[in-house]
Simulated assay, not measured.
Amino acid sequence: MCRWIAYSGTPVLLSQVLFEPSHSLIDQSLHSRMGVETTNGDGFGIGWYADESVATPAVVRDVGPAWNNRNLREVAHHVRSGLFFAHIRAATGTAVQQSNCHPFRHGRWLWMHNGMINDFRLLRRDLAVAVDPALYPDIEGSTDSELMFFLALTFGLTDDPPGAVARMAAFVERTGHSHGVQHPLQMTVAVADGERVWAFRHSSEGRSRSLFYSTRVETLRALHPDAAFLQEVSDDTRLVVSEPLGDLPGAWNEVPENSYGVVQPGQDAFHAFRPDLEQDVIRG
């Protein structure tokens, strides 16, 4: 599968999150502890929001492994952002190519995914024809992850992210069941619009891939007053990660099964995530 990080809060150099923690995403690209594969070397990507004067987030992706990419290290040590995504890929049947690396971008929106649509090759056509014809030409790659993004866009992501992702998940599951696939969907997803981050953990069989969120910064400061990083960031700073970045006691909490969280200044919240398999598809 894959590993990913979503960061929201005080603008920091990307390197402080991607390289410096003891079990950083770069370390996880070689030594994942909780992923299906130990090594995630089928490409990487980072996406970040600069400021409001820039219409879209920046995205850098490559097919090489993250652990020895000089360009990634160069960018990470010079780019500062208050909202960014990072993803390392372990391919699940589609080609190792730049257009298949996460995160995916459409306008102001970023999307990344860990998991898979089971028997995707059987379901791909039925899923693809449901994408809004106006959006379809913007699909660049061949992954299930990008197709999930464009289905969510079709089903109203820009107006109602939780509802659109639920409609996407339900549509994938119904399509899978129609083809005899017992457990069609496995997903942890992050999506952002430049101001907020939504993170989803769900699977058809109720055994979703790992996902964690960071404890509130003010609580961590009290627990670890000597941790320099905690003194530099605001109380609103949050991370959502596929697996913890280190072993700091009290720093990480598991995202509940079949739930989604919203990260935004002053109003973080968790909600149940229950795709309605009986609901008809509603386009946005």
Score class of each variant (00 low, 15 high):
L239S: 08
T10K: 00
F104Y: 15
L18Q: 12
S178C: 09
I5E: 09
H102A: 15
G43M: 15
L127T: 12
L30F: 04
T215K: 05
S145R: 07
W109I: 13
G163K: 03
G43V: 12
G64A: 14
V131C: 09
L211M: 14
D159T: 13
V59Q: 15
N253A: 02
F150T: 07
S214H: 11
V181H: 01
E205C: 07
D280A: 12
P161A: 04
A251S: 13
H31C: 07
G107L: 02
P162L: 09
H271W: 13
G45F: 05
S8C: 00
G206R: 10
T188L: 06
A91G: 06
T219C: 00
L239D: 13
S53K: 08
Q267I: 14
T92R: 06
E205F: 08
D276W: 04
L110Q: 12
V12W: 01
Q98E: 13
V241W: 06
S142D: 04
A222E: 15
L25G: 04
P65V: 13
V189G: 03
Y136N: 02
D132G: 06
W4G: 07
G156V: 06
S29D: 00
D268R: 14
D160W: 00
G246H: 13
Q279H: 11
D159F: 06
H202S: 02
F273G: 09
H179F: 10
Q98N: 08
G43H: 13
S204R: 15
R174P: 11
S214E: 13
L30R: 08
S32D: 04
G206E: 12
M148W: 11
L83R: 12
V165N: 04
G35E: 00
D132P: 10
D119A: 12
S142Y: 03
F120P: 09
F85D: 14
V281N: 07
F84R: 10
D42W: 11
L123A: 12
G41V: 07
G115I: 05
R105A: 11
V241E: 06
M168W: 07
F150H: 15
P161Q: 06
G250S: 04
A170G: 15
L223E: 11
D160L: 04
S203H: 08
R121Y: 09
D42A: 10
E205D: 15
A58F: 15
G93L: 11
S208F: 01
P137D: 13
S145P: 06
A190W: 13
V233S: 01
I46G: 02
S15C: 03
R121F: 04
L157Q: 05
D126I: 02
W252T: 02
G261S: 03
R216I: 01
Q16N: 08
F84K: 12
P265E: 00
F155R: 08
L153D: 07
H183D: 10
R283L: 03
W67Y: 15
A91V: 05
V79H: 05
S29G: 13
R3N: 14
A86F: 10
V60R: 13
L135Q: 12
M148C: 07
C101R: 04
A55N: 05
G141L: 13
I46M: 01
V172I: 07
F150A: 05
T175P: 05
T219A: 03
I26L: 06
H78P: 01
S203R: 09
R201I: 00
F155Y: 15
D280R: 14
Y49W: 14
V54A: 10
A227K: 14
